[in-house]
């Protein structure tokens, strides 16, 4: 191998690029994640800026989804999963004992890989979060909330005639947009998206990407994706994960045009994948 100016991977490593920001919504410090004895995430430090879209890319099994799930403590549902380090949501450590996961998840919403509408009506799906959190006082407010959430996701026109029909009857793309509407109906500060388009066809993907772009006006969005094009299209910053380590973080344009780390470059050019 020719002499390379770019960094290679060592046991102790330092994230290349600009992982830390001055003004951040979420700041992650020294986070390790273990599944039983197996370590899945190694010492990740990362800041996520307010009203920004950051995408996490990397080969499958690199820990990007695991990392995402740490951000609203979804990993709590897995018994053997153990998270150490510090993740701050506006100066509050979300792994602090005093933090209520229920409250946390109302602030940090999540959209999953496979559309997972509840087997209820479209209306009930969107109203679910508001109902459990008691966010509205009466039926009228709830109706408004449902309507506005669906409108923000561009789904209102398509479903307003059949709000009371089962959500499982929608197409895959519509279901995923419904899940996003369901998430934003709670008015979270951060939305986590775990490969939200991987189960969708190209046209539905395009619609969802457009939606993400619009939502970034008001929400901080972290998106995990296996599609580099998608990352390039929707995000301002991009983080590259490799075998549980955060290798490189930078502005999306920099990562894709001028990666600083050898692994990032290999991934971008298709040599790892």
């Amino acid at each position: 191998m020719a002499e390379n100016s770019k960094q290679t991977m060592n046991d102790t490593y330092e994230t290349t690029g600009i992982p830390l920001l001055k003004d951040s919504k979420l700041s992650v410090r020294n986070v390790d994640v273990f599944y039983g004895d197996k370590q899945a995430i190694f010492d990740v430090n990362l800041d996520i800026g307010k009203n920004q879209v950051i995408s996490m890319i990397g080969p499958s099994g690199c820990g990007k989804s695991t990392f995402l799930r740490c951000l609203n403590r979804m990993n709590d549902t897995i018994d053997i999963c153990n998270v150490t380090g510090e993740i701050k949501l506006e100066d509050q450590n979300i792994y602090d004992r005093s933090i209520d996961v229920v409250e946390l998840r109302a602030r940090v919403g999540m959209v999953f890989q496979k559309p997972n509408p509840f087997p209820k009506s479209i209306y009930e799906n969107v109203a679910y979060g508001a109902r459990i959190h008691g966010l509205t006082d009466n039926k009228l407010e709830l109706d408004e909330l449902v309507e506005s959430s669906l409108k923000r996701c561009g789904l209102w026109k398509e479903v307003k005639e059949r709000l009371l029909e089962p959500a499982t009857g929608l197409s895959g793309g519509q279901q995923q947009r419904l899940c996003i509407a369901r998430a934003i109906a709670v008015n979270p500060e951060v939305i986590l998206m775990d490969e939200p388009c991987s189960a969708l066809d190209p046209i539905a993907t395009a619609t969802v990407e457009e939606l993400i772009h619009e939502l970034s006006q008001n929400f901080t969005i972290c998106i995990v994706t296996h599609s580099m094009q998608q990352a390039a299209r929707v995000s301002q910053r991009t983080a590259y994960f490799h075998l549980g380590k955060l290798i490189e973080v930078n502005d999306t344009s920099v990562v894709f045009t001028n990666p600083k780390h050898q692994l990032t470059e290999e991934y971008i050019t298709g040599r790892i994948g």
Partner: peptide, 17 residues
Amino acid sequence: MNDKATRLAQTLKRRHA
């Protein structure tokens, strides 16, 4: 935003009970 936080706080006790 604040409205949401207070509303949430109100329900939390009941919900955890």
